[in-house]
């Protein structure tokens, strides 16, 4: 597929920077302008922002970038734009952006999210003190905002539930536990586990995280330096988040991934697909019983469930659970109660 670059032109090889920031966008200029400002205001200046215009009108993106570049900021990072002629999947767009950069670390910065000005500084510093870490993930504030008629305003915000346990393989396997805006990755992870899976229309970040975490730990920084913006139902539909307007697609892709993992060989006696399905069911229990059991520890359930699966012929139970979800849920609840009650 053809693509062309604008903004700051690369020489023969892209400039080596500390952090490559890949920002995919498609015809959301207002949010894009805010996202660019969020990068420009970083206290760490050694970044290269690549905006991947995923098939949208080039003139719109170029105009946003041109105006943003007229702003004098304390940061001296560079901005370039990669215009894709036709729209590709989100993960393919990420891969294109990453291919256009060389850096020690990278971040996927969605065009509707934002950072505290210290996000890159703190994350990079943490990488320095955790040399074997694959990623650093900061605390997150979720901002619910309304976007209507070209204006956007916050409605409320809340702390996004995240703990160190949710950044382990077992903590993440049941569900996608954090949005990309909160994570800084070491670039070497890509050479170890491959790039983002371009075949996935959504949840590519989750699938990538599950591969990445096998190469090194995800270090958690509780300070809330990432802001995950989601649009309220009152917003114009074009501004919506993939997760809030495409719940069915997320569910479907998740099942596909779990099917894929079921066919993979078990590692240390545990099959990734089985682990994901069971941990996911545990999360569903949490969600359906949220009103009555307020503080269910999903990580603990996931960990204990994994132990059960590893120890007791798992396949039969899980398949039965998938075929008859109510029976499956009841069985797991019974078993968990028995274990937790010990």
């Amino acid at each position: 597929m053809a693509c062309k670059r604008s903004g700051v032109q690369f020489p023969s090889a892209p400039p080596m920077t500390m952090v490559a920031v890949v920002m995919r966008t498609y015809e959301r200029p207002v949010l894009l302008a805010r996202a660019i400002a969020s990068v420009q205001q970083q206290t760490l200046s050694d970044w290269h922002l690549v905006i991947v215009n995923n098939g949208g009108d080039p003139a719109i993106v170029d105009n946003v970038v041109r105006i943003a570049q007229q702003s004098t900021t304390s940061s001296s990072g560079t901005i370039s734009v990669l215009h894709l002629d036709a729209r590709v999947g989100m993960e393919e767009a990420s891969n294109r952006g990453l291919a256009a950069t060389t850096s020690e670390f990278f971040v996927i910065h969605d065009d509707d999210d934002s950072w505290d000005e210290r996000f890159l500084e703190v994350s990079v510093k943490a990488m320095g003190s955790h040399v074997s870490a694959a990623a650093v993930v900061t605390g997150i504030t979720r901002i619910h905002e309304t976007f209507r008629g070209g204006s956007v305003w916050p409605v409320m915000h809340e702390d996004f539930y995240l703990t160190p346990g949710r950044l382990t393989l077992r903590g993440m396997i049941g569900n996608n536990t954090f949005p990309p805006i909160a994570a800084l990755f070491r670039r070497r992870v890509i050479s170890q586990v491959g790039e983002f899976d371009a075949s996935l229309p959504v949840l590519g970040d989750w699938e990538f995280n599950l591969r990445a975490v096998t190469t090194g730990e995800f270090v958690y920084i509780p300070e809330k330096l990432a802001r995950y913006h989601t649009r309220t139902s009152e917003s114009d539909s074009a501004s919506g988040n993939s997760i809030t307007i495409g719940e069915d697609l997320h569910r479907s892709v998740k099942l596909q991934l779990q099917d894929r993992w079921l066919q993979e060989p078990a590692v240390n006696g545990v099959n990734k697909g089985l682990l994901s399905m069971t941990a996911s069911t545990a999360t569903d229990i949490e969600e359906t019983q949220g009103g009555t059991r307020t503080r269910v520890d999903v990580e603990q359930i996931a960990n204990r469930t994994a132990q059960i699966i590893a120890l007791q012929s798992p396949l039969r139970r899980v398949v039965r659970g998938v075929l008859h979800p109510r029976h499956g849920v009841r069985a797991i609840v019974r078993r968990l109660r028995r274990i937790i009650g010990k």
Binding site: V30, A33, R34, V64, I67, A68, Q69, T73
Partner: peptide, 10 residues
Amino acid sequence: TPVRLRVALH
């Protein structure tokens, strides 16, 4: 935020 489409702001 929408004004950022019209002029550079800081």
